[in-house]
Amino acid sequence: MNRILIIFAHPRLEQSLANAALLENIPESGNITFNDLYELYPDYNIDTEREKQLLTDHNIIIWHHPFYWYSIPPLLKQWLDMVLEFKWAYGPGGNALKDKIVFNVITSGGTREVYRREGRNRFTVREFLAPLEQTAVLCGMKYFPPFAVQGTHKIDKADREKYAMDYQFLLRKFMNNEFKEEEILKHEFLNDWITVTNKLKV
């Protein structure tokens, strides 16, 4: 069994339909911890010790957040700044996060098409996520491709349900260790790995 820590950062959750659907379908399990940063630290006063303990207690970390200005919401950045301490997460003796898996779960207004060299946003999602990927690498973690709900302003209820079921599927697979690292790393998005895995099953 893997233990999953979802580090969730959304400043206005009550207005996000996509995230509401995703959160609703997170499996109830003692092996999944939902850590709601804006609920816990509305004053940005992050309890570093608590967060470090949570990271220690889990081996799969998810940064779950909306994709604001091609990046993470400020509280999550604050979290990175405060929690990933020198000599603990990185630097001499900083091995606390070594070999843990980490990836982003994002919701973005733009579709996958506009996140292309030729598209409106000129860079891919993976390129925008480079700082996080490198943060993970510096801490000795395995960075997995992101799971992305895209075009959130256009999709309808059925689409959202589909994404939510995929997220649930993903969490179950990861929790039960039913995945191969090298398979996953072949894909640009975890969404693609889910599609392929589902097809194989059928």
Binding site: D47, T48, M82, L84, E85
Partner: peptide, 14 residues
């Protein structure tokens, strides 16, 4: 107490 991350002294020492 909670702000070690912004404290560059340790980093400089290393």
């Amino acid at each position: 107490s909670a702000d070690h991350a912004w404290d560059s002294e340790q980093l400089r020492e290393v």
